[in-house]
Design a protein around this nucleic acid. Structure first.
Lengths: 226, 226
DNA sequence: ATCGCCATCTGAACGGTGTCAACATCTATC
DNA sequence: GATAGATGTTGACACCGTTCAGATGGCGAT
């Protein structure tokens, strides 16, 4: 469907409402809520065509709007991608909360948090790339200072680390362990997709088994060594 | 200097010899060894302007050649970047060999390998980004099957892991530990530059101290927990 | 020594991109 | 209902990767 829009540039797809669950909603303003529609369009392109296809013009096309329209809602392309990324971080945070809740012991919670992080990134690789890029040049990590993300993500990990007792109970040690956890999860998340590991993955019975096996070697996430 | 080349498009900088240590070398052919010169130009741009400025045209400009010239030496932009990346991996491999040699105990060797990996990536952040991107869609990890990289990098890490006894002495466990090591180093390398950590870094006495503190929390690289 | 081949380099072009200024249109508010 | 401001469109600019026809020049065959 978006294929057609790409091939036949003249005929633009009909503007999509912010939520297409109610088809009867006639867009109340020029477009409705374009900034939201653009973020959704961005995610759609990310999922269907990957990060290389995520141009500002493509997003505008997908949203059924002219290439310059986004500039009335975002300073530039980076700011639009930041919005897409922020949604991703919020979903990842929710996934971590869920993983922690599902575990029966604090130590197991750490493992599940790691697996949840990596699996989210692997399930949405293009989105995760955007998320990482956006986090790169931010002065604070995702989840710090954003009221709608309070109690998810970063703080969850720190709490779980304290509960699991993976490091001395001391603010600095806890911070270092939390950073180590994030770094490690990020590294595994980015490299789990390497084709080099395909053989090992299937030998271990799938990607999640592979991820668990790797994470078990990693200290913060792994089972306590005897 | 390359600023001028950007601003004043008409006047191209003089073609640079493949190695400018010997200024008397008159280029023997059309350009000399353009493919080598292009790789060097790419690295120069990477270091001075970052990865966002690394366009094929910019590389050609820096090498004093027309935008189409690189196509006689590389299939496309990706192949040129692959060459730049391969050099980077070889240098990183050498750095790892050196780090391992400098350590006095097998366990310390693991720590130094991790620090060397991260410090290389942090010292050449744009280059490392290219290196990672190139490794992404390769079927084998850097250092596998390339004769000029035999005995550096990947195999070094596996050997060091065996010597340090960080995992059961079993091919699969060794492979998993090696993968975990690489994932971890990659994660720390990419995130060590986050501005979020600036305060902690200076509190710990610099970036290398920060890196060592984080790595000590990650199992494969860290000191053995008591 | 000359010729012709072929690797190499150039110039111009195409479609794509991000971004901007000028203009058009619609909503909200007085 | 007039007007101001927010929102969308058009057209343009510079840059990008890539291709292709032609110029250039080194090197092997004659």
């Amino acid at each position: 469907m978006s294929q057609a829009a790409v091939l036949e540039t003249t005929r633009r797809p009909a503007p999509i409402a912010v939520a297409d669950d109610d088809a009867a909603t006639q867009r109340p303003y020029h477009h409705g809520d374009l900034s939201r529609a653009l973020v959704l369009a961005g995610r759609r392109i990310l999922e269907s065509q990957g990060v290389a296809a995520l141009s500002l013009r493509a997003v505008a096309r997908e949203a059924g709007v002219s290439p310059a329209a986004p500039y009335h809602h975002f300073k530039d392309k980076g700011e639009l991608l930041d919005s897409v990324a922020r949604e991703g971080w919020m979903e990842l945070g929710a996934s971590i909360v869920e993983a922690r809740r599902s575990a029966s012991t604090p130590r197991q919670a750490m493992t599940e948090i790691g697996v949840a992080y990596v699996c989210f990134a692997r399930a949405n690789p293009a989105l995760y790339r955007i998320m990482y890029d956006a986090a790169c040049d931010k002065a604070s990590m995702p989840g710090h200072g954003e009221p709608e993300m309070e109690g998810s993500g970063w703080t969850q990990v720190a709490e779980a680390i304290v509960e699991a007792g993976v490091c001395p109970d001391n603010p600095r040690e806890i911070e270092l362990a939390t950073i180590a956890a994030w770094c490690t999860a990020h590294g595994v998340a980015e490299m789990a997709g390497f084709r080099e590991f395909d053989e090992l993955k299937s030998a271990l019975g799938g990607e999640e088994a592979f991820v668990r096996a790797v994470l078990s070697n990693v200290g913060v996430f792994g089972a306590q060594r005897p």
